[in-house]
Write a protein that binds this DNA or RNA. Sequence first.
RNA 1: GGCCCCGUAGCUCAACUGGAUAGAGCACCGGCCUUCUAAGCCGGAUGUUGCAGGUUCAAGCCCUGCCGGGGUCACCA
Length: 592
Amino acid sequence: MNPFASVHAALVALLKRLERAGTIPPLPDPLPAFTVEPPREAAHGDMATNLALILAKRLGTSPRALADLLKPDIARLPGVADITIAGPGFLNLRLAPEVWREELRAILRAGTTYGDSDLGQHQRVNVEFVSANPTGPMHAGHVRGAVLGDTLCALLAKTGYDVTREYYFNDAGTQVDVLARTTHLRYREALGDDIGPIPEGLYPGDYLRDVGVALAQRDGLRWKNVDESVWLVPLRDFAVAFMMAAIRDDLRLIGIRHDVFTNERDLITNGTLETAFGILESRGLIYTGTLPPPKGKTMDDWEPVPLTLFRSSRFGDTTDRPLRKRDGTWAYIMPDIAYHYDKIHRGFRSMINVLGTDHGGYLERLRPPVAAFSDGQAQLDVIFNAIVKVFKNGEPVKLSKRSGTLVTLREMVEQVGPDAVRFFMLTRAPDSELEFDFAKVVEQTRDNPAFYVQYAHARCCSVFRHAAEAMPGEDLSPEALARHDPSPLSTEDELALVRLLAGWPRAVAAAAIAREPHRIAFYLMDLAARFHSLWTKGNSDASLRFFVPDDLALTRARLMLMKAVQVVVASGLAVMGCQPVEEMRHAPEASA
RNA sequence: GGCCCCGUAGCUCAACUGGAUAGAGCACCGGCCUUCUAAGCCGGAUGUUGCAGGUUCAAGCCCUGCCGGGGUCACCA
């Protein structure tokens, strides 16, 4: 248990003890959540708790009075070196340096599993992300959601959840028919026909040429001069399979693999859709009725028409929702509803979807059926991510699906590498717009957080390369280092760095609970900054360098710190899906 | 017009889900290599958190109403 968690636990135990002894009135049950966290101001101590502020009113006293009452007992807790009451009733603690130094051993022994927890208690979570339809390659617009979803999964897995990475795609609507028709055109092109410009209503992008070529190679002239009614279905299936394979390949470029792929057509053919509808019907949630026109919006083409409706307003929706169109065929949300029924049926009680902000109404439409299918037991959450604006040479790149111009994931990875792509996608909160500037992402300066963090890791590795040379026979493995004595670490800078490292488990847990993977990136940037600062201090004062030739004990202690930084950075990068680099290479431009 | 998201330093963004004096980077100015990678570091100042109320020990964060920006808006996928 890291110091923050153990102090929290000790405080809870102390409160219970005082309650039993009658020193304080009976505690509320459950105990309200209080924090034990590093204060914003370092001068306030190592950690601060708002315990007294949270509990005072419930115990019929004032925060200051409660703090005064608790202070002597807290001061006697093991490891507590100093305690002060500040502001309205904060309790600021300072721990003995040994407590922090000891945490270095825990880090070295845990390696990149440091920060793991059982927060999730093996609860199964289904995370659906990317879910692009198979009508084109992965492009810049998909990448953010992909990285966000994948990193969230890593975060949840690290905190003890049983995570399923899932991809859902529509392969039954008119979109895939358009795909089939475009494929036929590209197929004829591959066979030598002059197809001219792509007609309106078909997909204009060049990327579908490959599908046509592949089809021509496999089937030759078979579909060339036959009627659409003959080729539509086989070409559709061929194109969907081809595109999905391409999408998987693209995602693999940035290390993403989904555990489960679910598609709309299967849900229809295997009866899931009918089953889901039948359940809603059997619960009296389906009726035929006429909806009022949308509020506030004047629609010229609106006319009252009786439709098959789902009573979603019973579950908090603003209106009931049509599940069939006027011609009796399924409305477009019905497959999505069936899909969520399927997830619940597979046993998931926690589902997270990662979607673009343009899917704003999605959650309100799907929560009602989820509640209906699970009797309110299943939880559906959506993480909305804002758009990515791509810049090349300082100019915004216009992305247009209509004209078929797009920046592909493959192009991004080829130009800047998978790690930089992933890291950059996590440098903003999900609902904040993000600029992806090719020039900036490859820059090797402080300006580039991906570089900056990698550089810190590389510098740690550099120290160990030198240590191996200068200390022949010295065992530099983490296990061996963990057996050394960390007490020579005594400067405030060193201890501050240790405290920051000890905050890693907190950072992981907080990011997982908030479902905000970007916090990991910010933690690493903070850690890197502190590390670089310490490093450079060795420039002006040789006694502060990590490798001190005439002081073996100090060197060993500092190597412990070095290794711990390396481990935590590597651990963070692992969550983000980035490889830690051991040595930095100059960019071609930089050496020119 | 209804619903959702956003509005924080000149710019780009954070702020550990209600905590203390709201923080970083960029840009600007000035310093630091006989040295484990100067690809870096140190110092210098910047705020009515869009506006107005409310809730409480405490509000950038929660509530209400405005202003401004974006998204979305039966039976389309």
